[in-house]
Amino acid sequence: MTPTDAALIERIAAGDSAALGMLMDRHAPALMRYATHFLQSADDADEVLQDTFIRAERAIRGGMRPDNPSGWLFRIAVNRCRSRRKRWWRLLGGEAGELVIARAADPPEVEAREWRHEIAVALAHLSTPAREAFLLKHVEGLTYEEMATITGAGVPALKMRVSRACERLRDLLKDVR
C-alpha cells in the first residue's frame, strides 16, 4: 500500500531517509515545474528543490506536522523562488522593455523549442506576483484558496493578478501562434 504523506512525514521525523526520498519523488515534479518556469532556469529550480526539501526535513524533525503537506512544500518552494528571484531578476533587466518576437518558418521541433522560448520570454515580462499567481493557478491547477495559503495574498488580489497575467500573456503572444 502506498504510504500517505502524513505517514512519510512521521517516518522522516523518526530519521528514515528513504521516506524523504519517497516524499521527494511524489512532490518534486510539480515543484520543479513551478520553480523552472518561475525562475526561468532549470539550474536554479534544481537548487530550489534541494533547498526546499532540506528545509522541510529540518522542520519535520523539529516537530512540524503540516495539515496539507503538498501545500506546505509549495509554500516553502514559492518562498525560496521569491528569494532567489530577487537576486536575479531585478538585476538582469527586470520587468522593463518591450518584447519583440519574430516568428520564422522552421521545422516543427525547432518551432516547438522556439515556442517554449517565447513563452518563457513572455513569462519573464510579467511582474513577479503575476507570474507566481498565473503558474500556480493555470499550470499547477490550484484553487484560489490553496494559492492564498501558499502565497499569503488574499483571494481577490490573486484573482486580479491571474487576470492581468492572462491579459498580458495574450497580448505578448498574440502574433506568435
Partner: peptide, 8 residues
C-alpha cells in the same frame, strides 16, 4: 546587495 545575493 541583498537584491543581488539574497536577504538570507
Amino acid at each position: 546587495a541583498a537584491q543581488a545575493i539574497g536577504l538570507d
